[in-house]
Amino acid sequence: MLKRLRNIGDCGIVCDFGDEVNREINTGVIKLFHHIKNEVSLGNLNGILNYTPSYNKLIINFDLKKINSSKIIDFLKSVNFSTLKLSQSSKKWKIPICYDFEMDLENMSKTLKINKDEIINIHLNTDFFIYMIGFIPGHPFMGDLNSKLFLNRLKTPRVKIPPGSVGIVEKFCNIYPYESPGGWNIIGRTPIKLFNKKDEKEPCLLSPGDSVKFKSISKKEFEKLANE
């Protein structure tokens, strides 16, 4: 439930849902996110520029030329949270992954004392929920991973991780959309493009609130899908 509303700078509002990070709290955040997004698209709320959900907060950015903090807080106070639904537009995805591109399975197996196949199995059988997308375009933060697979970040982050790499840290799983540095434990790689600049309508495949299940593919299938 929404615990607190406050301004962040003179053109932002934080909707704070409390300190915990779990699916239920994030579902509340996502419901409000869909509601705001919808109200903006219907033209019921002018001057809103962005609405960014994270684990336990929704940040609303606005154009101070058109609206101000107190007007947005009034609007948020009028929202009947009990009637908000998880949008129909939340999608379920099957994302292909090739585990042959792992970089850390050996070490993960040693640290967790679970054999590699079992690690892959647990990962494959997890229904992931997208808590948020961000930092860079298309980058999803997904949970919740079985506590048997909880791992810390690498002590020394890698300088380069290829695009599509799938990493895990604690109860979260992510996919790197671009080649970038990173400290997550890499378990495999997907040939799917998470951010497609050629698609102006929906450049980003995934959206906060969507769910993801991975599907294991061979190296051959990976190459084929990557070249499509």
Partner: peptide
């Protein structure tokens, strides 16, 4: 802190 949305000038 738990990662959260950023605003310009933070």
């Amino acid at each position: 802190i738990r990662s959260e949305g950023i605003t310009k000038g933070a």
